[in-house]
């Protein structure tokens, strides 16, 4: 190995390390601050990096004031129901668009494409008015409502179905499978990676969304983690250690899921990116 080669390898590692540090620094600072007292967090001389002793007081205070069990449940239920709906309905529609011939196919698929090109904010006022008219504000249903069906999911899974060989269906047909049986037993298992990717996209989108839960579920009991944080921030605006404790409480479940399933997350996004 030449000297210049070795130098370039060190340089590459240095750049990557610096970038990686920048990625995690905000999270480290969030966690460190959450264990400090208010005085420690605002002390500049000396500047306190590590809390002198690690106290859970900020957490207990935040948990006392806000019902996080409720927030976890609301967020989890919203994500779970959105995943179920978008996977089920998108897989059905995607299979039909990819594999079946029927009148109106391109017209209806045009609708799917059209929805994807329009910014989602354009749907929000009418969707809010619908939820309001149904008397369903401040419910889990309201949180799930805009995600009942997914144009994006339909498009994504269609790409996966289109990649499967034609012979599979012919063989299934010869075995006497109906179209429904072919879809469920033969084709669906083969697009599992697409379903996983769509599940991850749906979960992340629902978890991160701020505007919709803020608009439709204004009562504290019906908030999600994200929309509750917006409220907590305006209530505690100066007590940063408590704010950081609330932020940690809001993000750790998703971080944990990510750390466990990191391979699926990254590969799901990488493969579907290539398909879009």
């Amino acid at each position: 190995m030449t000297a210049s080669h070795r130098f370039s390898r060190i340089l590459v590692q240095a750049i990557l390390l610096a970038g990686g540090f920048a990625m995690v620094l905000p999270f480290l600072w969030m966690a460190l601050t959450s264990f400090k007292t208010a005085t420690e967090s605002t002390s500049m001389n000396p500047f306190v990096i590590f809390p002198s002793d690690w106290k859970w007081e900020n957490y207990t205070e935040v948990l006392r004031q806000y019902d996080f069990v409720r927030l976890y449940w609301n967020t989890f239920a919203m994500m779970a129901l959105r995943i179920v709906c978008s996977l089920l309905f998108s897989a059905m529609a995607a299979y039909a668009f990819a594999r079946l011939k029927f009148p109106g196919r391109s017209l209806f698929f045009g609708l799917v494409l059209f929805q994807m090109m329009v910014p989602t904010q354009i749907f929000i006022i009418p969707q809010y008015l619908m939820v309001d008219a149904l008397g369903m504000r401040n419910t889990i249903f309201a949180l799930v409502f805009p995600g009942l069906v997914s144009a994006f999911g339909t498009f994504l899974l269609r790409q996966f179905f289109m990649g499967l060989p034609k012979e599979l269906e012919e063989a299934a047909k010869l075995d006497g499978c109906s179209i429904g049986q072919t879809f469920v037993r033969v084709m669906l298992p083969l697009v599992r990676s697409g379903l996983v990717a769509l599940g991850i996209f749906t979960a992340l989108f629902a978890f991160k969304d701020l505007m919709w839960p803020m608009i439709v579920n204004t009562s504290a009991d019906a908030a999600t983690l994200s929309s509750a944080l917006a409220k907590i921030q305006s209530a505690y605006s100066v007590h940063y250690p408590q704010l950081m404790a609330a932020a940690v409480l809001a993000i750790w479940p998703m971080l944990l899921v990510y750390v466990i399933f990191q391979k699926q997350f990254i590969e799901g996004i990488a493969t579907s990116g290539g398909k879009l």
Binding site: T33, A230, Q262
Partner: peptide, 28 residues
């Protein structure tokens, strides 16, 4: 590295902005 660079993507923007606001705080 791939795993680490992707982390910000799985955190809620509401939480992330709160910590950035704190990093950006004028005085502290």
């Amino acid at each position: 590295y791939r795993t680490v660079y992707f982390i910000p993507m799985v955190a809620a923007p509401a939480a992330v902005t709160m910590v950035w606001k704190w990093l950006y705080n004028e005085h502290f």
